[in-house]
Amino acid sequence: MLSVPLTRLVKVSDELSIMIRHLVVEAKPIQLSTLTHFAALAAEDAGFAPQQRDRIELVMDEACSNIIEHAYAGRPGTIDAYVEIRPNCELVIKLIDQGKSFEPESVARYLPQAEPANIKIGGLGLFLMRKVMDEVKFEFNIPGIGNRLTMVKRI
């Protein structure tokens, strides 16, 4: 871990504020449990039921595994993970990396099939991210930032 999780509150009105937590880790598989725990804890604090919390943890694993395996592909780098617990019952996860960009629409679309022989298993991670989260947005090569994945889940 390159930083301990930092927490700050951003006031949006006299009564309401957004809780933002930030964690920076090296983009290595050994950091995946730290990242997934970070997301699960935020989901719990945001009030998600255990099943949804577990699914959010899974999505964090998928998203960060993709960054490590595909964006950095063995090169050294970092993942900046932000979680925002918003007062309107929203959890926002933002992941920032400086790895290679990709075209999400060019990733094979996974389609569930009843017969094992018909299954094409490419795009499973992306399918899970889109299935579990209410919003999934990829942005690449943002000046001064890098690549940013934003995922939103509402209770």
């Binding site: 577990d54 998928e62 595994s65 094992p116 299954i119 298993i121 499973l124 991670g125 399918f127 899970l128």
Partner: peptide
């Protein structure tokens, strides 16, 4: 306790081979 999509991919590949 937990599996991810990579584990599911491996399971389905192995299932296809077995069958």
């Amino acid at each position: 306790e937990y599996i991810n999509s990579g584990a599911l991919r491996s399971m389905v590949s192995a299932l296809k081979e077995c069958k």
